[in-house]
Amino acid sequence: MFRNTIKSFTSNIIRPSLITRQLPLRTVQRCSGPVFVRSYAGFPSLTRDLAKERIIELLEGYDKVSTKNGITEDSSFINDLGLDSLDVVEVVMELEHEFNIQIPDNEADGLKTVGQTIDYILSQPDAC
């Protein structure tokens, strides 16, 4: 009985979107060869914006980082973000894992701000 009620109820409803909307006429294209719709092998190359976005996302996930002034390219790990030296080591290690690179000791000590880190990562040819 309930089913019948529902049936009679729904049959009265006219769904305007189905009726009034006209499907655009499609012209059939003749394909001479195979057409590739989407390539899953393509990986976007690392741009400065992309690198910055990923670094900031990583820093925001780190609970010791104080984000009250926001994270910009000029913000220094120790002075602005409130990390200590061992935290910086941890963050740089995470960045290595994120970008599939390895940063040697003497260069990792030179990374003091977010902008310097972005520059360093972009200078690595194999960073992805």
């Binding site: 030296s85 061992l86 080591v89 740089v92 290690m93 990792a108 000590d109």
Partner: peptide, 17 residues
């Protein structure tokens, strides 16, 4: 000295990884 300790810490993390 803090650089020495940071280097040790980094090596420790690498070894852990």
């Amino acid at each position: 000295n803090s650089k020495r300790v940071a280097s040790l810490f980094r090596r420790a993390l690498r070894t852990a990884y």
